[in-house]
């Protein structure tokens, strides 16, 4: 079918703003990756040499794989904790005749609206071994031995930050799944009840298949959000993502490279090369979702 005028009118404003302020600047960044800094301070074309350095030079590739592995763990925790908890909360909230549902929904979403500045600051306070609300509370129930300075230990810091991030963002899957559950028509639920399918079996057999497209959206949003994450690590651990880079993810690695830190000066060209690698990783994940998952998913029109 030919492109008719009203289709152009519907598409044009979004396409123009998006192209001018997002796509063109991004192309500018990808372009930067193909250049290197010349001794005179200018830029010289160097083809793929920045990528050869990133993956070939052990100093660079070690940092890159460390960040990627940390990022994968960060994502795994979100998929295993944030999304199941979000779905469970949405299922509880959507049960009919539940009192105070609006209150719970509003309250559980509150962390999501807070800025990283606030979240980083408050969790550092709560988990601090010195000011310590967490050690005091564990002490009160006789579990003081369990306390460790989680954000300061290499083996716990990344998991602790991932759980803080889960705490902050669990409202998003909850809201999306909740909206999907509410949009299931009453007739479908009534028909299920007529057939004696109620409670948990109703959730597993009737509702879950109907909200699968929403769960798919939630998963892909989690993936993209996690592989772009930066702010929480930055406000809690600083650009060095300590202790000893154990919380370094792709976003902080990119930031350090791009803007520099301490003794190393910023290198926009290597930074752009990392940005390009991040772009490729995310693109791969999204393509897997679009072609392997979404196209096979059944969608129901009510």
């Amino acid at each position: 079918m030919r492109l008719r005028p009203h289709v152009i009118v519907f598409l044009a404003p979004a396409v123009v703003v998006y192209t001018a302020l997002m796509i063109l600047p991004l192309i500018g960044t990808l372009n930067l990756a193909l250049f290197s800094r010349a001794p005179d301070g200018g830029a010289v074309f160097s083809g793929l040499r920045n990528f050869a350095t990133l993956f070939g030079d052990p100093r660079w590739s070690g940092a890159f794989w460390n960040a990627l592995a940390n990022n994968a763990w960060f994502f795994l925790i979100h998929m295993l904790v944030q999304n199941p908890v979000g779905i469970m909360l949405a299922a509880l909230l959507s049960s009919p005749r539940l009192r105070m549902a609006a209150f719970y929904r509003t309250a559980i979403f509150v962390p999501t609206i807070l800025s990283f500045v606030i979240v980083g600051f408050v969790w550092k306070l709560i988990l601090s071994p010195i000011w310590g609300i967490a050690p005091g509370m564990l002490d009160a129930v006789g579990l003081k031995a369990l306390f460790a300075p989680w954000l300061g230990k290499e083996e716990y810091a990344l998991t602790a930050l991932a759980l803080i991030s889960v705490w902050q963002f669990v409202g998003i899957p909850m809201m999306l799944i909740y909206a999907a559950l509410l949009s299931i028509p009453d007739t479908v639920i009534e028909a299920a009840e007529m057939d004696g399918v109620t409670g948990w079996s109703q959730f597993w057999k009737i509702k879950l298949p109907l909200i699968l497209p929403s769960i798919g959206i939630v998963s892909i949003l989690t993936f993209v959000g996690n592989f772009n994450a930066f702010d929480l690590i930055y406000v809690a651990q600083g650009a060095l993502a300590g202790p000893d880079f154990s919380t370094d993810i792709l976003g902080t690695f990119l930031y350090r490279t791009f803007f520099g830190f301490q003794l190393q000066i910023g290198d926009p060209h290597m930074g752009a090369a990392i940005a390009t690698a991040m772009f490729a990783i995310i693109l791969l994940g999204v393509c897997i979702y679009l072609f392997a998952v979404q196209s096979r998913m059944r969608r129901y029109e009510f």
């Binding site: 991004l26 500018g28 940005a275």
Partner: peptide, 10 residues
């Protein structure tokens, strides 16, 4: 998929 921040310089 791409944070708009990657285009900050431009």
């Amino acid at each position: 998929m791409v944070p708009i921040r990657l285009g900050t310089v431009a």
